[in-house]
Amino acid sequence: MSGPNKQYDPVEVAALDPAAIEQAVADALAAIGAASSLEELKAARLAHQGEKSPLALANREIGALPPSAKAEAGKRVGQARGQVGQALKVRQEELEAERDERILVEETVDLTVRVPRRRLGARHPISLVSERVEDIFVAMGWEIAEGPEVESEWLNFDALNLGADHPARQMQDTFFIDPPELGLVLRTHTSPVQVRTMLDNEPPIYVLCPGKVFRTDELDATHTPVFHQFEGLVVDEGITMAHLKGSLDAFVSRLFGDGTVTRLRPSYFPFTEPSAEIDCRCWICGGQDPNCRTCGGTGWIEMGGCGMVNRRVLTASGIDPDRYTGFAFGLGIERSLMLRHGVGDMHDIVEGDVRFSTQFGMEI
């Protein structure tokens, strides 16, 4: 910017020449009118209204004029800049209106078109079976009990009448936590939860103990090193095998359908006496089809083990075996799923393919 000069004629300053200002306005109006998009209009604004535009440079030269010339030059430049600003505003509104109309056409959404939906996940059938079993026993007035998956040897074995030389305590069946002298294992069944419940509560006790358990099995079509169980425990005065049989019949009839019953076959378990294997009447053929693939034509399907709680277990849990008796049973959730729905391979259950889970929906 040049310094003040009282002898300066504003007409002789090139940037303030009326013809130059008119030409700058004409160029600006032409560029604005030619802008066919908001991006082009932005470029025109920078070129003709920016700091380096002709009109901006002319406005700077006003300060170098003598006071007598500033008013006329300022009026001339101000009118020119106002004319350009008004043209920009009008063109901005026109282009925005055109853009909005174009968006309404190009981005129209047909609300009647079916939207393709991709299922991102599904409830695993193990969870669904577990919840179904829990609901059945809760409806019978039982409670749900849970415990830690890393358990002490005493609770996992000793309190359940599994002596130090019992085969189940050997390394080939049990995962021991290092170092072994800590006496910690990954629980091999949910029975320790039953012991914890008896230690913490006075009879009567009616609990279902669902959970994850661990065995050193190889993963194959029918076995897995990590699986799920649910075990039931009842301790009260006057409990007999009849109560056990009635509870099991009520359970299988609700899980597999009315008319389904169980039978008990003599067996042996260290923590129950007497003990029995649980068989369930085949819910597919009802025991009437010698060629049934589900039961192999026998009419019965093996479900798990049960029995009356051993007196030693009651004593270890602080319960008077002369006053109270009880029963316990245990069944595998994976086995129930495979039997009820014809799942032929354990790999399908544990590998996590969402296509396997989606076929079961939200209820089993």
Rank of each mutant, 00 (worst) to 15 (best):
K6L: 13
Q7V: 14
Y8W: 00
A15L: 15
L16F: 05
A24F: 02
A31K: 00
I32R: 05
A34K: 09
A35K: 01
S37W: 09
S37D: 11
E51M: 12
E51N: 14
S53A: 14
L57A: 13
K75N: 12
A80N: 02
Q83Y: 02
Q86V: 14
L88C: 08
E93K: 15
E94Q: 15
E98A: 10
V105M: 10
E107T: 08
T112S: 12
V113M: 08
V113G: 04
L128S: 03
V129P: 00
V133P: 00
V133C: 13
E143P: 05
G147T: 12
E149Q: 10
S152Y: 13
N156F: 03
D158R: 08
L162H: 03
G163E: 08
P167R: 05
Q170L: 02
D173C: 04
F175S: 06
F176S: 05
I177R: 13
P180S: 14
L182N: 14
G183W: 01
L184I: 06
L184T: 03
L184Y: 06
R187V: 03
S191C: 00
V193I: 15
Q194C: 02
P204G: 09
L208E: 02
C209V: 10
P210L: 05
K212E: 02
P225W: 06
P225A: 08
P225K: 07
F227R: 11
F230Q: 01
E231S: 13
E231W: 11
L233H: 13
V235D: 00
T240R: 06
A242F: 03
G246H: 15
S253M: 07
T272L: 02
W283T: 12
C285I: 15
G286Y: 06
G287F: 11
Q288A: 11
G296Y: 08
G297W: 09
G297E: 09
W300P: 01
E302S: 13
E302T: 15
G305K: 07
M308V: 07
R312D: 12
L314N: 00
I319R: 00
T325V: 13
G326C: 05
F327D: 05
F327Q: 01
F327W: 15
F329E: 07
G332C: 14
E334Q: 10
L339R: 09
H341N: 10
V343R: 11
M346P: 08
E351G: 02
D353P: 05
T358G: 01
T358Q: 15
